[in-house]
Design a protein around this nucleic acid. Structure first.
Length: 284
DNA sequence: CCTCATTCCTGCGGGC
DNA sequence: TGCCCGCAGGAATGAG
């Protein structure tokens, strides 16, 4: 599942392989992949063909490619999306949704997405932040992330800490996996009411989030070396370094207590019952 | 305005 | 063997 480290790895790949190139043709193979482009396929294609890509940028889990028209090609990978840079001769992937060909030939850009939770759109404004994603907060690795503003915003919420971590308008880039890993590192339970967090607990949590994201980014970044921009939920960091996520009944790496899985927000939360005791006042 | 449940989608794997 | 069902979950949407 692509969260900040995976999306940033893709962004770096796009910057390397697509910047400076002019789009020659676009095929939409599945209309759902551009459902966030309300004007439809014909308009989507017309806004792209002939445009030069000026770079690759990211806000949270959103990516966008600024174009020389002043628009941007915006992308979200959702659960299973990939942006691949492939030779035109490569066989089409089973779930290929959109193909972008360039005037200089190989390689082409492909949006592949099994579940099509993700998608592409052409949006206005790309030099700064497109208006469509103006509500997305900065991520904790962004140099302009404001720790004090985050502390205040967090304490003013009336919700549980994990819900807050997953709220992309408060802090971006964190999904279910890295939320669980960060909370475990900070020894905080997901149901802690945000307004009860002390300053030192928030600082501990922010430090844990940054550690987790940086470690994952380092792992994801190393495998990106070829003519291939990929997100693979099963690779790298996932398999090796997760302490609690997906490890129900396995021993906590810190204390050996079996990891517990709870249903939470129509998904799962993994905790160590000893390192992360449920608060008396719980909120989720 | 704020919080939260619902919804979209498809492949995999467990159970029968 | 094959079918059914639960599960994976980011974020827009609308209810309250």
């Amino acid at each position: 599942m692509p969260e900040l480290p995976e999306v940033e790895t893709v962004r770096a790949g796009l910057e390397r392989w697509v910047t400076g190139r002019t789009i020659a043709a676009v095929d939409v193979l599945h209309p759902r992949a551009i459902r966030r482009h309300p004007a439809g396929e014909r308009d989507f294609v017309a806004l792209l063909v002939g445009r030069r890509v000026e770079g690759a940028r990211r806000r949270g889990k959103y990516l966008w490619l600024p174009l020389d028209s002043g628009d941007a090609l915006q992308a979200h990978l959702g659960m299973s999306g990939q942006l691949l840079v492939q030779p035109a001769a490569a066989l089409d992937e089973t779930h290929l949704r959109v193909r972008v060909r360039f005037a200089d030939g190989d390689p082409e850009l492909r949006f592949v997405d099994q579940r099509t939770f993700g998608g592409l759109a052409v949006v206005a404004g790309g030099a700064a932040l497109p208006g469509t994603i103006a509500h997305i907060a900065r991520d904790p690795l962004d140099p302009a992330f404001d720790d004090e503003a985050f502390r205040i915003a967090l304490r003013s919420r009336r919700t549980g800490i994990k819900r807050a971590l997953l709220d992309q308008s408060l802090v971006s880039g964190i999904g279910n996996i890295y939320a669980d890993e960060s909370l475990w590192r900070a020894r905080l339970h997901y149901a802690r009411p945000t307004e009860t967090l002390t300053r030192s607990e928030v600082d501990r949590l922010l430090a844990a989030v940054r550690d987790v994201l940086r470690d994952a980014l380092a792992a994801g970044g190393t495998s990106f070396d070829s003519l291939y921009v990929a997100v693979n939920g099963e690779s790298g960091y996932f398999a090796r370094d997760l302490a609690v996520y997906g490890r129900r009944d396995e021993p906590c790496p810190r204390c050996g207590t079996p990891i517990r899985r709870d249903a939470f927000m129509n998904r799962s939360s993994y905790t160590c019952p000893r390192c992360q005791p449920r608060p008396r006042r719980a909120r989720w």
